[in-house]
Amino acid sequence: MATGAPQPTDHLRRSFVYRELLSAGAHFEGEGGAAIATHFGDPAGEEAAARRLGLADLSPLARVGFKGAGTAEWLAKQKVAVPPESNQAVTQDGGALAARLAPGEVLILGAIPGGALAGEDDLPARLAAAWAKAPIPPKTPRGFPVPRADTHAWFLLTGADSPAMFAKVCGVDLRPAKFAPGCIAQTSIARLNGTVIRDDKGRLPAYHLLADSASAAYLWGCLRDAMTEFGGAPIGLQAVRALVNST
């Protein structure tokens, strides 16, 4: 790799799987104070892989959670479209995703940078700032922030074969006919507790997967192994963007 190319070790904040990304031959770009894998040396091949079965590490991207009594009401006041039911997710105008994990718990995943919907509204940062600015004690209950950027690794699985791959590591039926877009399963994935959110990209099934950051390297290895029989490959942000922006 050419000297001067962005490296994960340039930043204090690193993806939980940066060593795995490096050994898979990743090229990086700086994003939100961390390096995120752009591609793995074959951008065109990855765009094809993304449609079949791709695994992207989105861990450096912004995300935040809110929990407790009044959470849904407070978020609605901040102009967040909060799903009415638990275990449902809704895409926001700026491309972020609001996932309702329980009656009093919402997880916000930031938009894919450079994606078609990504606007100027950096929702996780805006909400964290708005929460910190509100008066203490609050006039009405507003819940409390749950930092998710350090607790959970964030992977994105894309492509037509991703439901078949999930069947090998997860007991919940995630096939498109059984698990509609916007559905959430909080369950066991490769024996780790995790959250799966269906968020289709470019008319193909795609699933966000969030799980314990301390076990991220293990999970990355499990998924790479489960993907082998389908010819799945790690993909970078470039292929994810191409998928998001295709219709």
């Binding site: 638990s86 329980a102 007991g171 909080q186 369950t187 066991s188």
Partner: peptide
């Protein structure tokens, strides 16, 4: 696998409980 109907998450493997 035995199935437990969770009020929040629906039917799930008992090993998750």
């Amino acid at each position: 696998m035995k199935i437990m109907p969770c009020p929040l998450n629906g039917p799930r493997n008992i090993s998750e409980f």
